[in-house]
Nucleic acid binder design. Structure first.
Length: 405
DNA sequence: AATTCCTACAACCGCTTCTCG
DNA sequence: CCGAGAAGCGGTTGTAGGAAT
C-alpha cells in the first residue's frame, strides 16, 4: 500500500518553528480550525508537513496548555499513574489537564526517572531495585499482583471506553469549530474536558468507584474480597455491562456481558492466608500461594468521613507477618488544592519520600541506609508498602471530573 | 574567555490504530 | 471485508542554553 511520505517532500521545512510560522499556524487554526492536517500547511502558507503542524499545535501552540514547572501534585500523579499504566503517556496525560503527553514524557525521562532510580526504585517496574530481597516476599508478590491486575484491567476497560467514546463521537459531530472533534482531537488529553461529560470506564475510575464489602463474613477471615461497583457508567453511555472477577489463585477471568444493567461490577477475590488470625480453611488455593499469606481489604465508606485500606501480608518463607492499617484518603473536599492531610496520609508520605530522597538519600529514610535502596528490613517494607498504597490512593482520589473519564 | 559537558525539551520518525469509501 | 489515507502514539534525536572545567 505504501505509506505516503510526510516530511521528505522537497521544500518542506524541518526543525524548530519560527515565531512567524507559529503565528501563521495559530491564525489559520483560529479562523478555520485545522480540518485536514495534511491540507493545512498549503492553506496556511506554511512550508511544513501536516504532521509537523499538528505536533506544533498540540504540543505547543494550543491555548489550553499549561507550561512551566510541574507541581508536586503533578509529579506524584505522573509517577503513580506510570506505575499503573507504564509508558502510556497519552493515558497519563488525561489525568493532568493542560499537560501534553509529550511534555509528560519528557519530564519523566529527564527528571522523574532519575529521581526514582536514585531512590532505589526501578522506574520501569516501580519496584525496589534489589528485588532479590523482595522476591521471596509475599508483599512484593502481592504488589506485583496488584499491578498486573490493574494493568490488565486498565487495558481492557480502556478499550471498552474507546468504543464508547467513538460511538459518542459519531453523534456529536456538529459543534463549534474550536470545539469540534475536527479541531480538537478526541483522543487528545487536553481537550477531553471540553469534549463532554466525564466518563467512568477506566480501571482508575473504576477503583475510584464505590468500594464495597462484598460480604461481611469476608472481613471475618474467610477470605479477601475486594469488590467495587462503578455507578454512573450508565450515564447515558452506551457502555456494556461488565462483570469481572479476579482471583489471586487463578489468572483473571473476565466475563463481559452486554445487557440490561448499566452497572459495572468488578470483584477481586483472593484467598486470605495465614495472616488472618482465626485462620480459615484455605482450600485449593493453598497450592498456589503456599508460603504466602495475603489479605487485602479496601473499604470506602462513602458517607462516612473516613475510609480505610488495610492490607496484610504474611511471608511464609520469612515467617514475617507484615500488616498495615492506614488511613485512606480523606474526602475530596479536604484533598483539594494539595492540602496537607492528617498523618498517615500516603500522598503526604509519598511526597516526603520523593522530596526527601531526591537529594541522594535512600528510599528507606528511617533506616538511614545506602543509596542502593537496601534499607533495614522493616523500613524497606514499610516504604515499599506506602509506595503502592500511594498509587492506590491516587486512583481512589482521582477527581470525579477527571478528563480521562 | 573558551571549550566541553550536561540538561531540558521541541521536534522528528516510524509504527500502530482508526476511519472511511 | 479490504485497502488507503489520516491521525495517534511512543521512542528517539537534535539543539539551545546553562554549568562546569
Amino acid at each position: 500500500m505504501g505509506r505516503s511520505p510526510c516530511c521528505d517532500k522537497v521544500g518542506l521545512k524541518k526543525g524548530p518553528w519560527t515565531p512567524e510560522e507559529d503565528q501563521k499556524l495559530l491564525a489559520y487554526i483560529e479562523e478555520h480550525g485545522h480540518g485536514s492536517w495534511r491540507a493545512l500547511p498549503t492553506k496556511a502558507g506554511l512550508q511544513r508537513c501536516g504532521k509537523s503542524c499538528r505536533l506544533r499545535w498540540t504540543n505547543y501552540l494550543r491555548p489550553d496548555i499549561k507550561r512551566g514547572k510541574f507541581s508536586l501534585q503533578e509529579e506524584q500523579t505522573i509517577i503513580q499513574l506510570h506505575a499503573l499504566l507504564g509508558n502510556r503517556w497519552s493515558a497519563i496525560a488525561t489525568h493532568l489537564p493542560k499537560r501534553t503527553d509529550n511534555e509528560i514524557k519528557n519530564y519523566w525521562n529527564t527528571h522523574l526517572k532519575k529521581r526514582l532510580a536514585k531512590m532505589g526504585i526501578d522506574p520501569v517496574t516501580h519496584k525496589p531495585k534489589n528485588d532479590a530481597l523482595m522476591s521471596s516476599d509475599g508483599q512484593s508478590k502481592n504488589a506485583a499482583n496488584l499491578s498486573h491486575m490493574a494493568q490488565w484491567e486498565s487495558a481492557r476497560l480502556e478499550a471498552e471506553a474507546r468504543l464508547v467514546r467513538q460511538s459518542k463521537l459519531r453523534s456529536n459531530s456538529l459543534q463549534n469549530p474550536l470545539r469540534s472533534p475536527e479541531l480538537v482531537p478526541t483522543s487528545s488529553p487536553i481537550n477531553k474536558p471540553v469534549a463532554g461529560p466525564p466518563r467512568c470506564l477506566d480501571i482508575l475510575k473504576a477503583w475510584n468507584g464505590t468500594w464495597t464489602k462484598p460480604n461481611e463474613s469476608d472481613s471475618g477471615g474467610v477470605g479477601v474480597g475486594i469488590s467495587l461497583t462503578v455507578a454512573g457508567i450508565g450515564n447515558d453511555l452506551e457502555s456494556p455491562t461488565s462483570t469481572l472477577s479476579f482471583s489471586e489463585n487463578a489468572p483473571p477471568i473476565a466475563t463481559t456481558g452486554i445487557g440490561e444493567s448499566s452497572t459495572t461490577f468488578i470483584e477481586f477475590v483472593g484467598n486470605s492466608g495465614s495472616c488472618e488470625e482465626g485462620g480459615v480453611p484455605k482450600e485449593e488455593s493453598e497450592e498456589d500461594w503456599k508460603g504466602f499469606g495475603s489479605s487485602i481489604h479496601l473499604h470506602e465508606y462513602k458517607d462516612g468521613m473516613d475510609s480505610t485500606i488495610s492490607m496484610s501480608f504474611t511471608s511464609g518463607l520469612h515467617d514475617m507477618p507484615i500488616s498495615m492499617e492506614s488511613a485512606w484518603a480523606p474526602p475530596e473536599s479536604l484533598r483539594s488544592s494539595n492540602e496537607h492531610v492528617p498523618t498517615g496520609n500516603f500522598v503526604e508520605r509519598f511526597t516526603d519520600l520523593l522530596l526527601n530522597n531526591s537529594g541522594g538519600r535512600s528510599f528507606s529514610e528511617g533506616g538511614g541506609e545506602s543509596d542502593d535502596g537496601s534499607g533495614s528490613g522493616s523500613d524497606y517494607y514499610e516504604d515499599n508498602k506506602n509506595y503502592w498504597n500511594s498509587i492506590l490512593n491516587l486512583v481512589n482520589s482521582s477527581p470525579s471530573d477527571s478528563p480521562l473519564f
